[in-house]
Simulated scan of single mutants.
Amino acid sequence: MNIIITASQAVGGLISGSLSLISDALHNFSDVISLIISYVARKLSKKKASTNKTFGYKRAEIIAAFVNSATLILVAVYLVKEAIERFITPIPIKSGIVIWLALLGILANGLSVLLLKKSAKDNMNMRSAYIHLLTDMLASVAVLIGGLLMKYFEIYWVDSILTFAIAIYLIVVGYDLLKGSTKILMLFTPENINIKEIVRAVHKIKYVQKLHHIHVWHLNEDELHLEAHLDCSEDLTISEFDTVLHEIEHVLEDKFGINHINIQPEYRKEDVKDFIVQD
């Protein structure tokens, strides 16, 4: 559907002279690429881990979200440039073609949005594809309004204003997604995680002296990992430490949603005991 929309709007934009229609076609083309990237990433993410890929391809969808959001911003920057140039030198536009192709874009993109809406709620990769399609539908609505204004009021500069507005909207939604995917790729601590609260909760458990050398990161949107050193207050046996570890796992999952935990036990080991250590 998006390939058909892209080809139709590109040809229609060239015939009519509408920059907003060409910008919509360009955005639709980026959607085609983003959907392919998202589909491939979705398939890769389901591949099993191996000895040389111990995490499998679980980050494929995060990379896809990063690439898709980056393309949104690049397309938007180009549209801003074109909109400014066209505003300075407006030209007459064949509004009839613009109106009909805008309606086509609204119908096709609207159907695509409905198809992806459910998956977009819980998956960053699918959300990046969904945002591409949603912004396309909104862009087509803007192009339709512009076409009607040009047809009945001959306000041709509105084509540039709408293109500029579409571009700004793309930058806003693209930046938010780019920031989120970048934080995961950079192994940043999630915003909803407070390291000091984790420490306070773990320190309430019996035999825990101090939790330190802490790292918390998202592998993907489903897996939140924690690794740390645990200084024990007594010289525990392995079975005793397993009991402590089980309680730590229970607390961290229930209170913080951390579902993958790797703890290194220590007793009177002389090393840096800071929460965060520059390894």
Rank of each mutant, 00 (worst) to 15 (best):
V67K: 04
V75E: 08
L35G: 09
D254S: 14
I184F: 02
R42L: 07
A76Q: 04
R268I: 06
A165M: 07
K269I: 15
N220Q: 13
D222Y: 10
Q9I: 08
L224H: 01
M186I: 12
T163M: 13
L219G: 01
D242A: 00
M150T: 01
L114E: 05
S45P: 00
I131C: 02
L219I: 12
L211F: 09
G257E: 10
N109A: 08
H27Y: 05
N220M: 13
S140T: 01
I91P: 09
L245H: 09
T54Q: 11
I91K: 14
S16N: 14
Y267L: 05
F241S: 12
L245D: 09
W157K: 15
N220S: 13
K94M: 13
V77C: 10
R127Y: 15
I155A: 05
W217K: 07
V158C: 07
K117I: 00
I145N: 02
L35E: 09
Q209E: 11
L107R: 07
T189Q: 06
D136M: 03
R86M: 11
I37N: 00
I193S: 07
K94Y: 13
H246T: 10
G110L: 05
S95Q: 06
I33D: 07
K196G: 03
N52M: 04
G146L: 02
I195V: 11
D254V: 12
L236W: 01
I88T: 15
I168R: 11
I131L: 11
L116K: 06
Y169I: 09
H132I: 02
L226E: 05
M150N: 01
Y130R: 02
L107I: 14
W100L: 14
S181H: 01
D176G: 11
D279Q: 10
L170G: 03
K46S: 09
H260T: 11
W217C: 07
Y39R: 11
V141S: 08
I276M: 11
V158M: 11
L101G: 03
N28H: 04
I205T: 12
K117H: 04
H218T: 07
I36H: 08
E197H: 03
L144C: 00
L211K: 05
V208Q: 02
T237L: 02
L148C: 00
A7Q: 11
P190F: 00
L211A: 05
K48S: 08
E191Y: 09
R127W: 13
S112L: 09
D159H: 07
L72P: 05
Y175L: 07
K183A: 15
V172Q: 09
L149Q: 00
S38E: 00
H27M: 03
I195S: 03
L148M: 00
D176A: 13
I15W: 14
F164S: 04
